[in-house]
């Protein structure tokens, strides 16, 4: 398989999740696209170095996490209340309530601390705990405690948001 074909396959399998991770971290559609693009540019540049195919998603996630962590908010924008309308591609009236819910969920994620945002987007995307621990560089025991706290925090934030 050519490098380009391999890259295409990797991109298609991972881009959506990486985009969600970047979106969860920045709360901004345009920046999320930029960070995702930057992540995959780095993936391409390192593709030859990577041999263990079984761990490729962990590897891509780690690049994405580090890309997000080193991202500087040039405009000092606070994502919390400024989620753009482009967050969801509207497919019609019938899903507008779902759009609203997704929008609220992103707003709540934006209120978490940086590392919590990253961890929770991976939990929501159902990555195995072992893999999340490997990506975020913390022990699985600590991670479980951390996840438990973040879940509670996010649920509380969401329910508080929904009441208003």
């Amino acid at each position: 398989m050519s490098k380009e074909a391999q890259f295409k396959e990797i991109f298609q399998a991972n881009s959506k999740k990486i985009y969600h991770l970047c979106y969860g971290y920045t709360g901004d559609d345009e920046t999320a696209n930029d960070l995702m693009q930057e992540t995959f540019m780095k993936v391409w540049q390192n593709l030859d170095k990577f041999r263990n195919q079984a761990l490729i998603s962990t590897w891509i996630y780690r690049i994405a996490v580090n890309t997000c962590l080193s991202y500087l908010r040039v405009e000092k924008r606070q994502a919390k209340d400024e989620l753009t309308d482009t967050i969801i591609e509207t497919r019609g009236e019938e899903i507008s309530e779902k759009n609203e819910q997704v929008s609220t969920l992103y707003k709540c994620i934006a209120q978490l601390e940086e590392n919590e945002r990253i961890i929770i987007t991976m939990v929501l995307d159902e990555l195995p705990y072992a893999e999340i621990a490997e990506i975020s560089g913390i022990s699985e025991g600590n991670l479980r405690v951390k996840i438990h706290r973040i879940k509670q925090k996010l649920t509380e934030l969401y329910n508080r948001h929904e009441r208003f």
Partner: peptide
């Protein structure tokens, strides 16, 4: 919340 997350249709534009 997880179910809401999986229902989202936001896709990367790249």
């Amino acid at each position: 919340l997880k179910s809401i997350w999986h229902d989202q249709v936001a896709l990367p534009k790249v």
